[in-house]
């Protein structure tokens, strides 16, 4: 329960956002701060780890401990921090190029590992910060500055990939629906394990195909009660929906042991709480003589 009533503006910093007017990042930024305000966290209570890209620039706009790492490498930093201090609340923010391109390997292995962190991906189907090149989620055939004759590859389906790779919480949100996204983020944070939230968002400057109105016409909410998120085959079906209808909500959820739960050294306390005073390796040394 919240210690004091928080407002989402309590998590602003001295730096004003530098995103383009109308950018979907504003919606994600707002939903994130709302979710945290609802949870009543103090700024020192949590760590947000960012990748590099327009999404990562949020490192300057959220009042909390932050780690603005390398392009594609936010996840391992966050996992390392969690394994060192499992009592810390950790949220990771990345983009589609950052997390599904450069950091694709870490994404797959983070899903397998199920460390208890929340991973929110700004998926605008294009590279924004480097000015409009194709991303792993750009639609096939779409011309971009690095693929002027259209993208040849098939796009990655991050939601289906997450389900296939062993994700225990796979959700999709839309930056234009801040209130739904706020709830999804809270559910992701509450989930014991690796929670992945793919957030569809327009890039008003570089993606003139997947626009705000393009998404508005297509997204629909999965209704709890009508859609069961615990069935993996059904989840695949939902995950593969793309085109006329795009589902949002929790696509798949299961409860599995977190990575930290199965590391025997972490059962008693976090590594950070282990004292350095009484280390004595003499018993091990004796085996060498």
């Amino acid at each position: 329960m919240p210690k004091t009533q928080k407002d989402f503006n309590d998590y602003n910093t001295e730096v004003k956002p530098t995103w383009c007017p109308g950018c979907g990042d504003f919606g994600i930024w707002t939903a994130l701060r709302m979710a945290i305000a609802d949870l009543g966290w103090e700024p020192h209570d949590f760590l947000v780890v960012y990748g590099i890209g327009c999404s990562g620039n949020m490192a300057n706009f959220v009042k909390s401990y932050g780690f603005h790492g390398l392009h594609g490498r936010a996840l391992p930093v966050a996992i390392g921090a969690k394994l060192a201090n499992q009592d810390l609340k950790i949220i990771v923010l990345g983009g589609d190029g950052d997390g599904y391109g450069e950091g694709g390997n870490h994404f797959i292995h983070a899903l397998r590992g199920n460390v208890d962190i929340t991973y929110i991906v700004h998926d605008n189907q294009v590279y924004g910060l480097t000015k409009g090149q194709m991303s792993p989620t750009t639609e096939q055939g779409q011309p971009t500055s690095s693929t002027p004759e259209g993208v040849i590859e098939q796009p990655i389906n991050p939601v289906a990939l997450a389900v296939a790779a062993g994700g225990t919480f796979v959700a999709q949100g839309f930056a234009g629906d801040t209130l739904q996204l706020r709830e999804l983020i809270k559910q992701a944070i509450a989930h014991p394990g690796f929670a992945h939230v793919n957030v569809l968002q327009p890039c008003v400057t570089f993606n003139h195909h997947n626009t705000f109105s393009w998404f508005m016409k297509r997204v629909y909410k999965l209704e709890p009660g009508k859609y069961e998120s615990g069935n993996k085959l059904k989840a695949f079906e939902k995950a593969l929906e793309w085109g006329e209808k795009i589902p949002t909500g929790i696509i798949y959820q299961e409860i599995r042991h977190t990575y930290e739960q199965d590391v025997s050294e972490l059962k008693k306390q976090s590594l950070l709480r282990q004292a350095l005073k009484k280390i004595d390796i003499s018993k091990t040394l004796a085996k060498f003589s």
């Binding site: 760590l47 780890v49 780690f67 790492g69 390398l70 490498r73 996840l75 391992p76 930093v77 966050a78 996992i79 390392g80 921090a81 969690k82 394994l83 060192a84 201090n85 810390l88 390997n105 870490h106 797959i108 292995h109 590594l271 950070l272 282990q274």
Partner: peptide, 19 residues
């Protein structure tokens, strides 16, 4: 780790958290 890039970033994350 899944690769050396992850390994070094994991170590950095743990060090940042204080160990």
């Amino acid at each position: 780790a899944e690769d050396e890039i992850a390994a070094v970033n994991l170590a950095i994350g743990a060090a940042f958290a204080g160990v």
